[in-house]
Design a protein around this nucleic acid. Structure first.
Lengths: 203, 203
DNA sequence: CAACGATACGGACCGCCGGTCCGTTTTGCA
DNA sequence: TGCAAAACGGACCGGCGGTCCGTATCGTTG
């Protein structure tokens, strides 16, 4: 697993070049799978060997790109202000988190698609998914009257799957705001039904 | 698109043989993608040419298998008795439909996985998905106080995605009944919250 | 600054897989 | 039985992810 950073400046420069090239390629080309590793190498002005040494394999490159793009949001979630940050009350944080995920996928459609539909290993094993899931689960657990937090977290995240987002945005011509609104609505509905009888207490 | 049936008996026999071979191969092998077309052809005692002539391409074979397995459920949904059939009141039919989908995916894990994660074209374009979606949407539409039927149908179906099911059953060791119960719970929660303010009218 | 070991480079090369092609065989009709 | 149409099957192809190894570059040490 050659994922260790190198100190040599040519290595570092090449790594950057590859990342940049891959980024533009993925956002330009229609489908992620007609961006080949050779394409990326060529676009970065680099040999294939270099590319694979730097990132291990295709999934490694995708992961690196994804994590880089995800970093700001990760910050906002872990140490930022409400409504994403940890100080937010659960009822408000859950929709905010899911909205953030949705927006991220809208802004990085091709990339998310590439990462999720790469058959080599289930998206559910990716540790960025693990992060979202366990966070969401933890927050859900703080909402009184809500059971099955684990499954619920999965189910809610499933509503933001990259290919679904792609389908809604592309095929069904749904607008960004339309989607955000409907997802918000959906989340609300899931959270709304309180204990036994519908209570929806105003806070 | 060579999908048209042939009347020649060798063609028919071979088609059956391929279907059967593929079926057992997919249920035996760990991951769908280490069942190659050559494997299937060999197991069926048939040349690759025959296989591709009969089903067009890999996706075609998967689709044929899937549709065959789906047929009984399709019957039950279209013309069967409650709780799946058309006579069922919407509130009861929605959970029943989703439970049926879930059970189907549990019973055909590898196959569903193969079909959904085949990158060549989004699962949302498959017409069996279209069928489930439009049916579910239609039923949801009959539930008073429920908006966004289209999106809601997508979101509910997303909770039964094959790779999620696989993950829950495999990685998280969730039992069949556990999953069914949690999905039922989730569906209930989505349907429960009435119009704007929690109403949950008893029928 | 010279020299050298360590490290990275890059593109020819490999194995595999989905899909095609075409000479050969089977089928069923007259 | 003869014959055209249809199906057979496996050699073949193109392209992809990934590897290998001779070569070029780096940076460190005297």
């Amino acid at each position: 697993m050659p994922e260790r950073q190198s100190s040599r400046k040519d290595a570092i420069r090449n790594r950057e070049a590859v990342l940049a090239a891959a980024d533009t390629l993925f956002s330009r080309r229609e489908s992620p799978e007609d961006v080949t590793m050779a394409d990326v190498a060529a676009a970065a002005g680099v040999g294939k060997g270099t590319l694979f040494r730097a990132f291990g394999d295709r999934a490694g490159l995708l992961r690196a790109l994804y994590e880089a793009r995800l970093e700001p949001i990760r910050q906002a979630v872990e140490t930022g202000p409400p409504p994403l940050g940890p100080a937010t009350p659960p009822h408000d944080r859950v929709p905010a988190l899911l909205d953030a995920v949705l927006c991220f996928k809208l802004d990085n459609r091709r990339l998310a698609l590439a990462l999720e539909e790469d058959g080599s290993s289930s998206p559910y094993r990716a540790e960025h998914y693990e992060r979202w899931h366990s966070l969401l689960r933890a927050v859900l657990e703080q909402i009184p009257g809500l059971t099955d937090s684990d499954f619920t977290a999965h189910a809610l995240l499933a509503a933001t799957r990259a290919d679904l987002v792609e389908h809604l945005a592309g095929e069904e011509r749904m607008t960004r705001e339309g989607m955000r609104a409907q997802l918000a609505n959906f989340v609300t509905r899931v959270l709304a039904s309180g204990p036994p009888q519908g209570l929806t207490a105003e806070e």
